[in-house]
Design a protein around this nucleic acid. Sequence first.
DNA 1: TATTTTTATCGTAAAATTACGATGATATGA
DNA 2: TCATATCATCGTAATTTTACGATAAAAATA
Lengths: 116, 116
Amino acid sequence: MKPDMKKSSTVDPSDKAITRSAAIAKALGHPVRIIILKILAERDTCFCGDITQVIPLAQSTVSQHLKALKKAGLITGEVEGVRTCYCLNPDGIQDLNRLLNDLAEELLKPTIKNCC
Amino acid sequence: MKPDMKKSSTVDPSDKAITRSAAIAKALGHPVRIIILKILAERDTCFCGDITQVIPLAQSTVSQHLKALKKAGLITGEVEGVRTCYCLNPDGIQDLNRLLNDLAEELLKPTIKNCC
DNA sequence: TATTTTTATCGTAAAATTACGATGATATGA
DNA sequence: TCATATCATCGTAATTTTACGATAAAAATA
C-alpha cells in the first residue's frame, strides 16, 4: 500500500495498468493491425512480404502498422538476412489477455444492475 | 481505411468481429476513457459533472470522451432533467469481454511455440 | 562487382484525435 | 419571468494517425 497516496474510491489515473491497457488497446484499435496479429498467429513464416501480399496496402503502410504493434510490445521483429521475421510476443499477448480480461471482469460486475 | 479488401483464405478482413473489436479497442485506447469506464463501474450516480470533478480535464473534453464511449456502444447516456446519467452498456461490455477474450485466446494459442 | 530482393525510413498530404474556451439548449429554482 | 445549473456542441489549434510513393540500407544473387 502506498501511504501518502490519497485514498480514492474512484480511480488512480497514474495507474500503470491503465496506461498499459490503453496502449495495448490503442494498438488493437485498427482493423488491419488485428488482422496482422491473426496472420502471425496462423503462420509459421511471418515476413513483412507475406503480410503485404495478403493485405491490400502499400508495403510502407504495412511496415508502419508492424512498427506500431512492435511499439506496443505485441510483436517482435528479428532480422534474418534480408528479411525480418515478425512474431507474436508472448509477453505482450499475455499482457493483452490479462489486462483486458481484468478490465472486462471489473466492468462486467456492475453490469448486472443497470444504473438508469 | 478501405472497407473492401482482398479475400484471404486465412483472415477475412470484412469480418464483422474484427471491425467491432477494433472499434471497441479504439474506444479503450485512451487512458481517460478507461478511467471513465472504471468510474462508471464503481458509482451509482454517474453524471457528467461527477466525472469532470474527478478527472482534471475541461467539461467539454470529458463530454467528448463520453461521446466516443457512447459511439462505441460501451456506455449509454440518458437525460434526466438538466443532467445526463451515463451508465455502462451491458451489451457493449459483453462485446468487449467476448470479442477481446476470443482474440486473446486465438493469439495465445501459438504463443507457446516461439516462431523465431 | 553489379543487380536484385527485402524492408525501414523519409517526405508528404489528408484525415482524425485531443484539448480548450465559448456558446447554445434545456430544465430547475428563485 | 429571470437566473442558474448542467451538458452538448461549435470553433479552433496542436498533435497524431493513416496512407502513399520514393528512396536508402543491407544481404543475397548473378
